[in-house]
């Protein structure tokens, strides 16, 4: 589970077929850009979840 949680943001970050598009836009920013920027805090959450489920000391 720990490894799957860590793998999800990694795969999403290089899944260009998923995000190399301009629609839908957000505040005039193409999807490509706001998706990647949103993925940054999301990846933090996944790492935190991995620590939680893996029993790593935090």
């Amino acid at each position: 589970m720990r490894y799957i949680l860590l793998l999800i943001p990694c795969v999403a970050s290089v899944a260009t077929w998923l995000y190399n598009i301009s629609e839908p836009m957000l505040f005039g920013i193409p999807f490509f850009y706001w998706f990647l920027m949103l993925l940054i805090p999301v990846s933090s959450i996944f790492i935190w979840l991995a620590a939680r489920t893996g029993g790593d000391e935090l």
Binding site: L6, P9, C10, S13, V14, L36, D56
Partner: peptide
Amino acid sequence: GAYGFFAVPYTILIYPFIFLTMP
């Protein structure tokens, strides 16, 4: 253009890796 944004996936990939290996 967009190609320069490779720095973003690059820096997303780093942290799960650090979390696993660096401790």
